[in-house]
Amino acid sequence: MNQSATEIMLALGLQDRMAGSAYLDDQVLPEYAAAYAKVPVLATEYPSKEKLLDIAPDFVYASFASAFSDEGVGDRADWQNLGVGTYISTAGCPKDMRPAKLAMDDVFAEIREIAAIFGVAERAETLIADQKQRIATVSADVKGTRVLWWDAGTDAPSAGACCGGPAMIMSAAGVTNIFADLGGSWADTSWETVVERNPDVIVLVDASWDRAAAKQAFLEKHATLKDLPAVMDKRYVVLDFSSTSAGVRNVLAVEALARGVGGLGN
């Protein structure tokens, strides 16, 4: 369940082992579209517990803890009691079990674990080597560029903070996060602080519920923010939300961020 978990399975070529998928935020990546077409879609959001019991899975894999809440398919312990294994992405785990600061290596570790569970360890190594290679080639001359990662919210902007997916992508791309001092993955901050810290580049996260174009329009109409140098020079990088939650797409975000920042001539 969820985009990242589904795509990690597909990236490992495990589509034949998937009894169903659910709750994707976005289209699957084009390279996996053919494989994904064979996987039954159980629900557009989380399936009900009954629906999931009906297909009698051996193993349930999700990106977010919410998958195993009342909103999703119910408590993990209940599934374990039924003899069904469960797995939540490291990045989606409750706070005390999550790495203090998420890194690409945590994502790679997840890919390895999933591959080990399905006995395809060598595919994981190929995939990871390819991803590492791509990251290594992009992190180039963008060092020191100060970036605001604006996820959502206009009253109090929710910005990428020290320790989650956004921070991981920014650090892999080699740029500096202006809100690295805030705890958590995302944090509500204020425009006053944004103005004071005066970012070189603004990342506009594009999500179906909060479009990058709307964010840009807000910045350029705002009485104060329109005069922010990054806004005046339109130094924006647009990233899809789905590429920012821990999974195989992070590489795309790293590449897009580094290319975007590099292309702006900083």
Partner: peptide
């Protein structure tokens, strides 16, 4: 209708 991520801004409002 809301995405779980969108509920955050609603709660704030």
């Amino acid at each position: 209708a809301a995405d779980p991520h969108a509920t955050h801004s609603i709660t704030f409002w």
